[in-house]
C-alpha cells in the first residue's frame, strides 16, 4: 500500500497531541511541574481498521481514548476526524460528532446507571440525538440487544444492571455504543474486568459487529496478546510516547523498540506449550 494512499484513507489523525495535567494551584505553595500524560504524539487510524493501543497503566493510552471521545481536550496539538479538526467543536456540530464516535468503558459495573433499565440505557443515545420516533427507537433497541447476544431483546429491556452478570453488562454497554451506528468506537480495556472465557466471547462479538457495520475501532489494552488477536495494527505507548507502530503480526514477530521487546518477553505464556 502506498504511503499517500493510506494518508487519504485516514479516519482519525492525531498531530503533535500533548495532554498535560496541571497540578492544582494553591496559594503560597510553589506549583510543581505539570504531568505529561501524552507527549506530542502522532497517530493515524485508517478507515475500517481495528487499531490497537498497547501500554501499561499510566502510559497515556486511556487519555488518548478520552481525547478522541472528547471527554477531555488536548493541551496542544490537534485531532482530526475525517479531516475535520475536533478541538473547536461545539453545540450542534459537537453533537453530530458524538453520534459518529462512541466509547466502551472498562468497568461494566461502573458504566451503567443503576437506576436506568437496560432499555432506557440503550435508548438514551437515540433520544438525545433525536433519532426516530418512540416506536422505531424501541424497535432499534430490541434489535441492537439481539445483535449483542442479549436475546430475546424484549426479555432484557426491563431488567436492571444489578440483575445482569459482568459479561452481560458489558454487552449492554456495547449495545449503547453501537445503537447510533457510529463510524468510530473507542474501546477502553473492554474486557480487563472480566473472566477469560467471557472476554473471548466479547472479542468475538466486537469482531462480528465490525464485520456487520464496518466500523473503525481504537482498541485500548494492556494485554499484547489480546491486541494481537483483535487488531490489524498496533501502536505501543510508553510514558506518553508512541514508541512503535506496526501491523499486529510484525510487532510481535519483529519488534524493534526495546520496550516492545521487553513487553513481549514478559508476556505470560505456557512453558510447556499445547
Amino acid at each position: 500500500m502506498e504511503k499517500t494512499d493510506t494518508k487519504n484513507r485516514l479516519l482519525v489523525e492525531l498531530k503533535q497531541v500533548t495532554k498535560a495535567y496541571a497540578p492544582k494551584k494553591r496559594w503560597f505553595v510553589r506549583s510543581s511541574q505539570p504531568v505529561l500524560a501524552l507527549n506530542s504524539i502522532d497517530l493515524g487510524i485508517e478507515h475500517g481498521e481495528v487499531f490497537g493501543l498497547v501500554g501499561q497503566s499510566g502510559s497515556g493510552k486511556t487519555t488518548t481514548g478520552r481525547l478522541l471521545a472528547k471527554l477531555e481536550s488536548p493541551t496542544a496539538g490537534e485531532i482530526y476526524f475525517d479531516k475535520t479538526p475536533i478541538s473547536q467543536l461545539k453545540g450542534v456540530r459537537l453533537k453530530a460528532y458524538r453520534s459518529r464516535v462512541q466509547m466502551i468503558f472498562q468497568d461494566p459495573y461502573q458504566s451503567l446507571n443503576p437506576h436506568l433499565s437496560i432499555a432506557e440505557t440503550v435508548l438514551e443515545p437515540l433520544m438525545v440525538q433525536g433519532i426516530g420516533t418512540r416506536d422505531t427507537r424501541m424497535e432499534k433497541v430490541v434489535h441492537t440487544l439481539d445483535l449483542v447476544g442479549l436475546s430475546p431483546g424484549e426479555a432484557f429491556c426491563h431488567r436492571y444492571p444489578h440483575q445482569l452478570s459482568g459479561g452481560q453488562r458489558q454487552r449492554v454497554a456495547i449495545a449503547r455504543a453501537i445503537v447510533l451506528e457510529p463510524q468510530f468506537i473507542v474501546a477502553d480495556e473492554p474486557t480487563s474486568m472480566l473472566d477469560a472465557t467471557i472476554a473471548i466471547q466479547l472479542f468475538k462479538l466486537l469482531q462480528e459487529i465490525k464485520e456487520t457495520f464496518g466500523m473503525t475501532f481504537l482498541f485500548i489494552t494492556h494485554n499484547l496478546a489480546a491486541a494481537r488477536y483483535m487488531c490489524d495494527r498496533i501502536a505501543v505507548i510508553h510514558e506518553g510516547h508512541i514508541v512503535e507502530v506496526n501491523t499486529a503480526e510484525n510487532i510481535i514477530r519483529h519488534p524493534e523498540h526495546p520496550y516492545t521487546k521487553k513487553l513481549i518477553k514478559v508476556q505470560p505464556g505456557f512453558k510447556y506449550g499445547r
Binding site: R98, S99, Q102, F105, Q110, N113, P125, V128, R176
Partner: peptide, 26 residues
C-alpha cells in the same frame, strides 16, 4: 466522573439531562 455519566456525555446528552436523569436518582 463515574463512567455512566461519561457514557451519557459521549452519547451527546445535555447537562440538564445528565443532572436530572443520571445524577438526581443517585
Amino acid at each position: 466522573h463515574r463512567p455512566f455519566i461519561e457514557a451519557s456525555r459521549v452519547a451527546g446528552a445535555s447537562h440538564v439531562r445528565i443532572i436530572f436523569r443520571h445524577i438526581m436518582p443517585n
